[in-house]
């Protein structure tokens, strides 16, 4: 179990918080962009042949002698895709934090009767896991573990493991986005599949903090590539600028694409990160 008892209690409070915000009932809580069976009135439209008589708004007909039908927002149980980066670059606090955030997101989804699809990227698992119903919550929490191995590659697992039937929905990407092929590749793919994309960037401040000035031979955790560098104050400042620029670029991409972006420190408690996501309405229909 990735959570201890105290964290489990915090997780339950998060579930309640998410429920209050979304006010969802039994058919799921995701607000879809198309009309369909649901409880929320959407609009009137002219009656068409074949429409059920039950959907005719007879009150309007009595007042205006026109046959119109009421349309409601479609409500359906959706799958929440959890893309979990377990690459070597996450090693340390980032891996733990990412695992807990992913597990909490899955727990909230199951609590709200949504399906949860966990796609691990890296680590010793290659296949995705699907969960539906509150009864699978324990399985989900047992499955998601803390691992950090292999290279960062978010796109390939998503492309290969995302079920074709799942064409839209909510996708959480929990990663440091240290993808050599580009941080936005996986996000771009999900957006193309009409997912609502929520990117959570986990950063380990200890791992990312530059060392003291000096001469270093740096080795990439994932690829083993090395680089010699004379680290000066000037170089450290340049490094910090590069890092911030990379994050700003990712944030700008998400904003432009309508995706959510949350930057979180790995030493931050997971429930605070989830609470921030809830506060941003990422679970709101």
């Amino acid at each position: 179990m990735i959570f201890d008892s105290r964290e489990m209690a915090q997780l339950r409070r998060l579930e309640i918080l998410a429920s209050r915000v979304a006010r969802g009932q039994i058919h799921g809580h995701r607000e879809m962009a198309r009309a369909g069976p649901g409880s929320g009135f959407r609009e009137h439209r002219a009656y068409q042949e074949g429409d059920s008589l039950r959907v005719i708004d007879w009150n309007v007909y009595a007042r205006s002698d026109q046959l119109v039908v009421k349309e409601f927002d479609a409500e359906e149980a959706l799958d929440v895709v959890l893309i979990h980066d377990r690459s070597r670059s996450m090693e340390g606090a980032a891996a733990t934090c990412a695992a807990k955030v992913t597990a909490a997101l899955g727990a909230i989804s199951l609590q709200r009767l949504d399906g949860a699809i966990w796609i691990p990227c890296g680590g010793d698992r290659s296949g995705s896991e699907s969960y539906r119903g509150r009864g699978r919550l324990n399985d989900l929490l047992q499955t998601i573990d803390v691992q950090a191995s292999g290279a960062t590659d978010l796109l390939t697992p998503v492309q290969s493991q995302l079920p074709r039937a799942v064409r839209h929905g909510l996708a959480f990407v929990v990663s440091d986005f240290f993808d050599p092929r580009g941080a936005a590749q996986s996000l771009r793919f999900l957006l193309s599949r009409r997912f609502l994309v929520r990117a959570i960037q986990i950063e380990d401040p200890d791992a990312l903090a530059p060392p003291a000035p000096g001469r270093y031979k740096m080795r990439d955790r994932e690829t083993g590539a090395t680089l010699k560098i004379d680290l000066t104050e000037e170089a450290i400042a340049a490094y910090q600028r590069t890092r911030e620029a990379r994050t700003r670029g990712l944030r700008a991409f998400c904003r432009k694409a309508g995706a959510g972006f949350l930057r979180a420190r790995a030493d931050r408690p997971f429930f605070e990160i989830i609470r921030t996501a809830i506060a941003r309405g990422w679970f709101k229909r």
Binding site: D176, Y216, R219, A238, Y239, T242, R243, R246
Partner: peptide, 18 residues
């Protein structure tokens, strides 16, 4: 000194600016 870094391209880009 040898150190492991999470993402070497970040430092490579830094070195390019030096």
């Amino acid at each position: 000194r040898r150190i492991d870094v999470p993402f070497l391209p970040l430092w490579a880009a830094t070195k390019g600016q030096m």
